[in-house]
Amino acid sequence: AGENVDTRVEPASITKVMTSYVIAAEIASGKVKNEDQVLMSERAWREGGARTDGSFSGFPVNQRAPLHDMEVGMAVQSGNDAAIALAEHVAGTQEAFADLMNSYAARIGMGGSHFVNAHGLSAPEHYSTAHDLARLGQAFIRDYPEAYAYNSIKEFTVNGITQPNRNLLLWRDPSVDGIKTGHHSGAGYCLMSSAKRGDQRLIAVVMGAGSERQRADDSLALLNWGFRFYETHKLYEPGKPVAQLKVWKGKADQAQLGVTAPLLVSVPRGRYAELKPSMEVPKSLVAPIAAGQPVGTVKVTLDGQVVAQAPLVAIAAVEEAGFFKRLWDAFWMWWESD
């Protein structure tokens, strides 16, 4: 469900979800570590600290703190100072970090977004869309669940100051575990939220609400509507064959194809039986085939629209056969192609 989902808007502090995603990705690649000591620079303190009108974490200026603590301060307290300090630590400058944000946004598929800072305060050419932010939330939960979990923390203390998480839904509904609030005069009150009930997870994005309460009420209404009228099914699991394909010149004559991650689909309740799966694969393969090698795509449609898709890969390797088997298969490949 959506309204004006692709309209460019100011994302305010929801920007920090993109910042968190980049940091998690850089940690995963080994470029930074949770144990790194991050400097609260003069610039970070002046532009995002307690003397500004925005939200802050309160880390002392010109002192260092573990990256993990800074990131939790950014996620829970929405600290602009922590966001700038983290950006400087990861990329040298906030401007260079913004380039990283845009690079990762492109990989996620956020075609309607552009970032120029790590905190989300109003700036020319800093924008996103509700649709893109939903994609970002989905990617964050899927790719870096440990970092995502920081968003469910209800309060955090820095330098003797305890501040609560501004996401009111964390107190209203136990199924809600994130994600991020945002607010400034140009953006209004914003909330990217997510909840998991059973095996089903949904994401809601509300932008430009009139108050903190309204963004929470509207978000919970969207989530409740989604859980009431939609159901989620796991169609395929990793490591289990979805299909098999003929292999030429291999020690085995068939390659088992499967998915690398669970393929889930959410559909209107009662319409699961109407789903139609299809596969786009070549007619045959030629060995050697490596385990995990992409081979094709599985797609699932409802009413002619693709509702889920995933790459198909070889579950196990198929080694190249000996000389005579390869020669024999080469003959039959020629014969069948004639």
Rank of each mutant, 00 (worst) to 15 (best):
A261L: 04
T157K: 14
Q200W: 00
D303S: 06
I27L: 13
Q163W: 04
V265A: 07
V116A: 01
Q293M: 03
Q244H: 13
T162I: 09
A317Q: 10
I84G: 04
E47M: 08
L191D: 12
S122Y: 09
S113N: 01
G48M: 08
N224Q: 15
I179Y: 11
K246A: 08
T93H: 04
S194I: 08
L264P: 01
S219T: 14
T181A: 06
Y127P: 06
D199A: 15
M207E: 12
P66C: 06
G292F: 01
A118F: 06
G92V: 00
L168Y: 12
H114E: 02
I14M: 15
W332R: 06
Y21D: 07
N34G: 10
E95N: 13
Q305T: 09
P268V: 07
A147I: 01
M70I: 02
A273H: 10
V158P: 06
L169I: 09
Q244D: 11
M40T: 08
W332Q: 03
A308L: 09
S41L: 10
V22N: 07
D303T: 01
V116R: 03
A75L: 12
P288L: 13
V318G: 07
A252P: 00
G296H: 11
W328Y: 10
Y150E: 07
F115K: 05
Q256R: 15
I161M: 00
A321H: 13
